[in-house]
């Protein structure tokens, strides 16, 4: 079904080591270590408040890491400004889409494409995310699904090698979910690495094979999705007791 991905040659694309992100005394990320290879697609799941979005925000440079390191394509990016991280080749969509409301759809993509020094990609990206028809519209006329695709378009315009998708599925109809899944799979087929933060397992299954399970700021499982669903620890995390150390 899904290509297991490129053979891992040499260094992983993204290497996170012992990452800790603190808000005051609260450790939202409590020593996360993981690697993502070139062209690999993997899911990131966990209960609410487990730190999934915090992980994405920290890797992208929107939150400062308190401890640990992040390296991308062999280069240390811990503590770098988010625009530098984006320029290096990492990008993400937002859980609640954050388009630029003062700009048209096309201009939203243009801003990113221009900063990525690839102005010619605008039309291509708009077509890819099925937004060509509304390219000259203002953002407030878009449906929620279109706004999510615009978020994706903005990220794609930066030609990322690694893309974080943060809970894209919420609120989408089955048709829209299908379209998005196809879109994401085609990105993977073209060699983009994908980390899909998601609650909706049905959607996740269509896009990734492997998952990381995050709870209370720590990775508790890493492996095939179907194994995850059968794993005891994971089941406890989702269905059973909450981790008392972090309540």
């Amino acid at each position: 079904m899904i290509d297991q991905g490129v053979e891992r040659v040499g260094e992983p694309l993204l290497a996170v080591q012992g990452l800790v992100t603190r808000f005051g005394k609260f450790r939202a990320l409590d020593g996360v270590s993981l690697t993502i290879g070139e062209g690999e697609s993997v899911g990131l799941v966990g209960p609410n408040g487990s730190g999934k979005t915090t992980l994405v925000n920290t890797v992208c440079g929107l939150y400062p890491a308190s401890e640990g390191s992040i390296s991308f394509a062999g280069v240390e990016i811990t503590g770098k400004r988010p625009d530098r991280v984006a320029a290096a080749g990492i990008n993400r969509t937002f859980q609640i889409p954050k388009p630029f409301f003062s700009l048209s759809v096309r201009e939203n993509v243009e801003v990113a494409a221009h900063h990525a020094r690839q102005p010619h990609r605008v039309e291509e990206v708009l077509e890819r995310t099925a937004l060509l028809a509304v390219a000259n519209h203002t953002v407030d006329t878009l449906t929620a699904a279109q706004q999510k695709r615009l978020d994706l378009a903005r990220a794609l315009a930066m030609s990322p090698r690694l893309l974080f998708i943060d809970e894209l599925a919420a609120g989408l109809s089955p048709n829209e979910l299908q379209e998005v899944a196809v879109m994401l799979r085609s990105l993977v087929d073209e060699g983009m690495a994908l980390v899909v933060v998601e609650h909706l397992m049905g959607f996740l299954e269509q896009v990734v094979h492997e998952v990381f399970v995050l709870t209370a700021g720590r990775i508790v499982f890493q492996g095939e999705l179907r194994d995850a669903l059968a794993d005891d620890t994971v089941q406890e995390v989702f269905l059973g007791r909450t981790d008392s150390a972090h309540s």
Partner: peptide, 25 residues
Amino acid sequence: SRYGMTLKAIKDDPYSAAMAGINVA
């Protein structure tokens, strides 16, 4: 200008602007 568009992006959403490669500060 493009700079004006950049400023609008910053005004609308500084996080999103940063991920669009803008050096917000």
